[in-house]
Design a protein around this nucleic acid. Structure first.
Lengths: 333, 333
DNA sequence: TGAACCTTTGGTAGCGGTTCCAGCACCTGA
DNA sequence: TCAGGTGCTGGAACCGCTACCAAAGGTTCA
């Protein structure tokens, strides 16, 4: 592989001049520029990124750190990030974390020269980590995460929870249950929690009773969903509708209800949250949150931060909306 | 941010010694090592990746180049790659291409210092590009792509096509149609094509007639699927079953058939290919191809290639298997 | 006692770019 | 004719690390 020195020698000029040609500096005569470009072409020369980075002190790289990729929602967000960054000179380096230990290790390593900026998806750094990034001059933008001193784009989970619940109320349901997931990230206010708050708010506003036995939490997964669904449906006064905090769990709940002979939406209305791909195919009524757009927006913010050096922290709340499909209907009574 | 020089100065040793400590060289006395480590801790020092890379001539980075991420199958493959590479020191840089021009530009840039190795998903470089990589000493592994001089992992599309078709034959179908996609990548032998070949082979083996009017191609998408489905079902002798070359298209075909009042699988059996997430939820019988595993395998191969410097080209064919769900049934005579 | 060796160390030359400074040729105006 | 620009150029310093070489100090053995 040829280097800038080879090009300079062959073109009979100094390395400085070649560098100027590469960087489109106006301080090169047309004649020289042409000669250099010809040699570059001839040698099929490409400047070394590494050397350029070291010299410039920049990597032209944006880190994207995400929890394991099993979540469809995370994948959609990545899509948005990729789509936005593709038109820029920035490359994307993907980091995944699965355990808390990995997570801090990754954050720690990231703060050193590897990337120019960081997009953290569904993961929030703690104060110490934020401080490290600040010292290193690496801007961080959170997507679906929270830290008061960082710019971030979040979904209006509370509003979404209320929206879903109001939809059920409007259909005439009175006994409405909630199924959610326990919060994992110690640093975030769990999305499931927020959606549950929205649920309670909506019930309260409608003057409906908030019953503890109607609010169940469990890990995502088919088995757990079956158990929770059974628990609900065997109540002396079973709910006629259920708001499930995520589509993935909602699908499992639908399946469980049908397995138990409860027709959906005939005897049980089910509404989810996220609007993942599958929802459309199985006709799940759900709250659409702009996953793809959240990736785009996050990417735009990090690009901005990369320009201005410091972006004042603020929270951008993305709106949610209801997508009515076939899994909700008025109660039969 | 402190550098190796700062650490050396503060510890009262030379930079060489610090470097040795960092790289766990045995040529350092315990006493010195301890002192250096203490200073590293104290200054919260992390070596610069860029400088290290430049000096080492390696980036500890694997490039992953993929077509646009709208395909669920590509996402699953990426998952496998990420899962495998996570346990290694290699980082993943994601490149996407959308147009042929972008594609060669990406391949061209990639051949220079940016990555140590390349995983190409569903994209095959041409001879010139392969030669460039060879000269640059960058190993390339293809996942779901073909080039005779590159190691690659592919799905047994022909066998899968035959498998799907035999399943329909075994159920008793005689009039079996095929719907596929036109081949796009000029450098690959289209997967759709291979699956179609498997289809024809199976029909031939069973002594069934191969009819031209039963084999239709069209771009993926709901509208086209509707048109093709209508075309098939309005034939004087409409097929009783159809093998669709991809799940995505199969879903659209199912929908189209149902819209036209053809019950699936009552009046038309539909079988797909890929086993994407959604297939499970809608009960689509399909041919499972190990997408996640293909990513894992590709990643393993590139790691191997990175070790041995040169990996002789070979083709690893991943097996497929039938997943029977609810979209296929014996024909109602 | 000193030659020969081993262990540990410091210093420096790259890696391949960018950037800055000095210098050269040419031009302008007094 | 010469001081002072201006336009372009070459070369060296530098980015922060690794790898190598030379050397210092300690040990062994004749």
């Amino acid at each position: 592989m040829s280097t800038i020195v080879d090009v300079a020698a062959r073109a009979g000029v100094g390395v400085g001049t070649v560098s100027r040609v590469l960087n489109e500096s106006p301080l090169v005569s047309d004649k020289t520029r042409e000669r250099v470009l010809a040699v570059i072409e001839e040698l099929d020369y490409r400047p070394s990124h590494m050397a350029r980075n070291l010299s410039l002190g920049r990597t032209l790289t944006v880190g994207v750190i995400v929890p394991f990729l099993t979540q469809a929602a995370v994948m959609d967000r990545i899509r948005g990030i990729v789509a936005t960054l593709r038109t820029t000179p920035y490359d994307i380096v993907l980091f995944t974390v699965e355990t808390p230990a990995q997570r801090s290790e990754q954050f720690r390593n990231l703060a050193r020269n590897r990337v120019d900026g960081l997009l953290s998806v569904s993961l929030s750094p703690d104060d110490q980590e934020v401080e490290r990034f600040r010292r290193a001059g690496i801007p961080v933008v959170l997507i679906n995460g929270r830290h008061d001193s960082l710019p971030r784009v979040v979904t209006d989970d509370t509003a979404g929870g209320a929206l879903a619940t109001r939809h059920l109320i409007k259909l005439g349901h009175q006994r409405i249950a909630f199924i959610g997931e326990p919060t994992l990230d110690p640093y975030g206010v769990g999305w499931s929690e927020c959606r549950q708050i929205g649920y309670r708010n909506a019930l309260e506003d409608a003057g409906l009773e908030i019953r503890a036995e109607y609010q169940l939490l469990g890990q995502p997964g088919r088995a757990v969903a079956h158990r929770l669904t059974r628990e609900l449906l065997r109540l002396p006064e079973p709910p006629t509708a259920v708001f499930v905090a995520s589509d993935k769990q909602a699908l499992a709940v639908m399946e469980a209800a049908q397995d138990m002979g409860f027709d959906v939406p005939g005897r049980l209305s089910v509404i989810g949250f996220d609007d993942i791909d599958i929802a459309k195919y199985v006709g799940l009524t759900t709250v659409h949150q702009p996953l793809f757009e959240s990736g785009c927006r996050g990417a735009e913010l990090i690009l901005e931060a990369l320009q201005v050096e410091t972006l004042e922290p603020f929270e951008e709340v993305l709106p949610v909306d209801l997508v009515q499909r076939k899994s909700t209907a008025p109660p039969t009574s």
